[in-house]
Design a protein around this nucleic acid. Structure first.
Lengths: 199, 199
DNA sequence: CGCAGAGTAGACAGACCGGTCAACTGTTGG
DNA sequence: CCAACAGTTGACCGGTCTGTCTACTCTGCG
């Protein structure tokens, strides 16, 4: 993630929004505060985005693009086996949680999961955007499972469903870690992933 | 759950708070609206509870007591085997999700998980309360796993950790169902529980 | 009866919210 | 040289937020 100062106003707003909403929540993030932190003025905000919800959608999409390019694609395009890639992904997520939780003074969990729990029932656009982002996550996992199946690492089965199961376990583990405020909870729960992958 | 009219003011506030915060979210639930729906006045609200956060904690504890008495204790004190009890619990949760989502026009997910994602990083009292409620959930699951292990349904293992894994899967599945706005997602993901139980 | 305390009532406060708007600036292309 | 336009600025709006306060009612008890 580039330093905020070097970006243009729109990108600064996007990046600040993602950070603040991850750290706190959508509703606890005020437009005024957000603009201040992004070094932008309210008028600029509403010049680029019709509403706070639209900014949230754009911020999540942008955040996912960064995560995809910075984590998912490198991990899943390696020469490792499907299951190893999966374990590598989990390792990266865990590292990120540890690092961010040290920086912010507590476990933040998954930015998409957080926003989903909070806003899915209140804002349809946000719900749809997150649904798509979840799907993208699952597609990466599914592809790894297919490779694992072809390599004989796991028995043949419904890899799409398996991917959803694994993703659900990830999200649940992040929630437990957040409520316990202990990133190690995530690592321990996640040990079950290999089993779910073969289910 | 008794009809709201027959309860005293404090209980009406508790019940209405749990319902509204489940349906929407903590921050989207206003004190004014809450009082109106509970047929109470602001003065009464702040007579019983020092703040909205304290009400939320009390409402979650009360809701959990209802769920424990109405679902968890009946299910886990039956004469069925440990794994069957677990499946029965999941069945009940699924039925509840289907019913509530028909009533409210969308999947609401887990009231505790929702509040946890939203408020764990913003209100330490809420975080601690939910942490305890999560623990109680896990204790029920763990007890069932111990019975399952003794009956030879699953191999010997760390049943405390297994319980956390299962609980994480449940919470994750509820999140996916909420974001997809489809309660059937929950049922499908949850098919992996038996595997996780034996991991 | 009279009093104490629990609970009720709702006006009020002050901060803060998301969002609007008209005026301004800086750049680009004809 | 100016017109067109993307972007910026910050004052401003009406509404809503949680929480406070004083006055009131009801009930049980000595």
């Amino acid at each position: 993630m580039k330093p905020a100062e070097s970006l243009d106003t729109r990108d600064r707003l996007l990046q600040t929004a993602a950070a603040l909403m991850w750290e706190r929540s959508f509703q606890a993030t005020g437009v005024d505060e957000l603009c201040q932190r992004a070094n932008a003025k309210k008028g600029s905000f509403y010049h680029f985005f019709p509403s706070k919800s639209d900014l949230a959608v754009a911020a999540m999409e942008s955040f996912w693009e960064h995560a995809r390019a910075g984590i998912f694609e490198p991990v899943f395009s390696s020469s490792e086996s499907g299951l190893t890639q999966l374990r590598e992904l989990i390792e990266r997520i865990h590292e990120l949680q540890v690092q961010v939780s040290a920086e912010k003074g507590g476990v933040l969990g998954c930015p998409f999961g957080n926003l989903g729990q909070e806003m899915a029932r209140q804002d349809e656009k946000i719900r749809e955007a997150l649904q798509k982002i979840f799907d993208s996550h699952c597609q990466f996992i599914e592809a790894a499972l297919i490779r694992a199946e072809q390599a004989g690492e796991i028995p043949a089965g419904d890899n799409r469903q398996r991917a959803k199961n694994i993703f659900a376990l990830l999200e649940g583990a992040l929630l437990l870690a957040k409520v316990a405020n202990d990133p190690q909870i995530f690592r321990r729960v996640i040990s079950a992933v290999t089993v779910v992958a073969a289910a």
